[in-house]
Nucleic acid binder design. Structure first.
Lengths: 356, 356
DNA sequence: GGCGATATTGACTGCGAATGCAAGCGCGGC
DNA sequence: GCCGCGCTTGCATTCGCAGTCAATATCGCC
């Protein structure tokens, strides 16, 4: 321990490659090469340098490295609060998988109202190698990224950039098929915010799927993706009509609907009213709800997004590729089963593999 | 691509301060000063430069800036999956407040099993100005940060570093007082993982508080903070004894306990058995559960952590300051009320300000 | 034993911005 | 009218590392 060295240098600001070089008796270039895979360096020199580096606690600076290589190994992830709330796993999975690829996740959180205009400057300031957008980015922002050659992958939305999405429409179709087989004839819909692309896809998917069966989806009310929003929408909706099933644009609202029915409106679910969601959040599996829903393959989605972005950074992928990942119907007990009624419906496993 | 080079330079890799300087007819230093508050520069020169910068879409590089100023404006946040799952708002709030202070959040996600040994090198590689640890970091990691003069704020745990925590023990004491007043005499406890500091604090807090009333907390079983874990622990526990109240170390397990009671064990909550949680997650307020719990002031906690870290970075705060923020009892209907019984217990507002 | 080929190594420059220093400028006071 | 002061501005240097180029060491082969 201690630096007997020249004067009293105990508080050296930062250990640099020069420090390691001096200790190991080699040049700075050698130290640099010792930390770069595939660099031209002999095994024993590398070993010697790494021993010295360990002694000093040296780690190469990604900042300096970024400056010279033009690769920061930083991935910008843009998300709103809703992203974090609606499925906390998304951020975790993204972070984890970005790390596995040897990069780091730089999070840009937007208030739900902010459109993200101010984002790009910050993105550029940190030289992010790529961006994953889990919220809608204005086209100008995407254009600015394109101009800077910063690849962008949109997550669960489309736009003038590559994207990875869950196939909400097909998922909705599977769900609707199940509902129609189970007897649904007068469905209503509780959508998310009118400007949320995911909600729009799910709504259109449901409307089209019901239409294919000659059934109208009506009424459609908009809410805000929250439990309280679902509760309020249910109260509003059930005050004016009596659908046999309420299809919700996400699970959280569906759970709110169920709570409203049971605790405020005196309706039984599923006997008096079927309720479905979308997302398969963990709460939906809880026995108090047993929500029939559609699962997004989050891990697969995030993994694909990260991989695709990596390929774009390396210049290996098409810049506008659109990937759709299949959703999966999860049948539980919040709608009456086919030809059955009540909670003892067909077990989930028997349903999940049905062709549409 | 092809580099027509020479003439056609539309695709300049990156806009630098030199480009702006050339366009504005000034020196690079001037450009630098135009983007630094308080720098010595005349108003009209700054205006001219900013006009040129806007024209070119220039933003100063934080990477280069970090190299010379030794300030990256990056805050490392270390979290596990549990952090993300148990309260998704933590990450969002942290990110948001870090941004408000003009910094960015660099997320280090650990698998729940990883102890974080590999973290420090990455932390140093990115020159983070400070670290917020929402998971337990090994002492060697903290020591390594201290050696590098990287301030660390521990979130909801203590250790050889500054910390911001919720006062779990006092919160538990308030909860226990409420329980005892409500008639609890034979409480049991479902703890989190035995090595989770937060769980230990809550367990000890509960045990001490009951002991002060001459009541033994027994049995105590350990689980994993999950809904399923709570369900299983309840089944296990109720197979061997019949407590009048089950106190859980977090809300998620408490909700699992309630579901187990109602859907598997044929017990009514709160009539046959009281159940309490800790955290006040959003689901606890849902009418299906109406969980009596203790709220952590998350926004306040994260705000304090970010502020304290900022002060440490600026050298203004004490390096080992420990801040405790008060928890707040939230009385709902998962335990029978004082002198009452059943769901029509005393409204929450009447309870929340009682002295212990 | 000599030659070229190959593998290592070191000196040096530059990534993009910040900043100490000195020069330039305008202005007031004598 | 000249000197000096304060405000701006430009020059040159620096942060830590990667990669280019040239120099040297090592080796195989004839």
């Amino acid at each position: 321990m201690g630096q007997p060295d020249g004067a009293d240098e105990t508080a050296h600001a930062r250990v640099t490659s020069y420090d390691v070089a001096r200790l190991a008796g080699v040049s700075q270039s050698a130290v640099s090469r010792a930390f770069r895979d595939g660099a031209s360096i002999s095994p024993d020199m590398r070993a010697r340098i790494q021993r010295a580096a360990r002694e000093l606690g040296y780690a190469p600076s990604n900042i300096a490295r970024a400056l010279i290589t033009q690769r920061s190994r930083l991935i910008g992830v843009v998300a709103t609060r809703n992203t974090a709330r609606n499925n906390p796993d998304i951020l975790f999975h993204l972070g984890h998988q970005i790390q596995e690829a040897g990069n780091r996740m730089l999070v840009f959180t937007l208030p739900d109202t902010d459109s993200g205009e101010g984002i790009p400057d910050d993105l550029f300031a940190y030289h992010v190698d790529g961006v994953i957008a889990a919220t809608s980015l204005p086209d100008e922002v995407l254009a600015a990224c394109a101009r800077r050659r910063i690849p962008v992958v949109l997550f669960n939305r489309t736009g003038p950039a590559a994207s990875v999405s869950c196939d909400h429409a097909t998922g909705m179709r599977d769900l609707v098929s199940h509902l129609v087989r189970s007897g649904t004839r007068t469905p209503a819909f509780i959508a998310g915010p009118a400007d949320a692309p995911v909600s729009v896809e799910r709504l259109n998917g449901a409307r089209d799927a019901f239409a294919a069966h000659g059934i109208a989806l009506d009424p459609v009310v908009h809410s805000d993706y929250s439990h309280e929003g679902g509760r309020a929408a249910a109260a509003q909706l059930l005050a004016i009509c009596r659908p046999d099933t309420i299809v919700c644009a996400n699970d959280t609202m569906a759970l709110g609907v169920i709570d409203a029915c049971r605790h405020e409106l005196g309706l039984r679910v599923p006997e008096d009213l079927g309720v479905t969601g979308f997302d398969n959040i963990s709460q939906s599996a809880w026995p108090s709800y047993a929500l029939t829903t559609v699962a997004q393959p989050f891990e697969q989605l995030t993994r694909t997004a990260v991989r695709m972005l990596g390929e774009l950074v390396e210049g290996e992928a098409m810049p506008r590729e659109r990937r759709l990942m299949p959703a999966r119907l999860v049948v539980r007990e919040s709608v009456v089963g086919e030809g059955h009624s009540g909670p003892e419906a067909i077990p989930a496993a028997a349903q999940e593999r049905n062709p549409p």
